[in-house]
Amino acid sequence: MCLGVPGKIIRIYDDNSIKMSEVDFNGVTMKVCLETTPQAKIGDYVIVHAGFAINLLEESEALETLSMLDEIAKLGEQEQT
């Protein structure tokens, strides 16, 4: 129940006053509860545990980490030359 894989929200709906969504995990669709991520919108990526979106994934942060990596790689090259 703890392997949180990121998925993309494709539909948001209400089920007996519980905020629910359909989330796409690489082609497999699952029902995911959004009560703990009320700010989530269609198209957002969420981390899901036990059928609940525990958080949104931040694309800007993801890109920033990757640009840091680029710098690590560049430093590595400089050290080698």
């Binding site: 129940m1 703890c2 949180g4 007996n16 006053s17 519980i18 509860c33 009560e35 703990t36 545990h49 036990a50 059928g51 609940f52 525990i54």
Partner: peptide, 20 residues
């Protein structure tokens, strides 16, 4: 059962059960 990752889900279910 579970760690902090399942706690919101488990807790919310009881909350909803009480509301309903």
């Amino acid at each position: 059962i579970g760690f902090e990752t399942t706690a919101p889900a488990n807790a919310l279910s009881v909350m909803k059960a009480k509301e309903l």
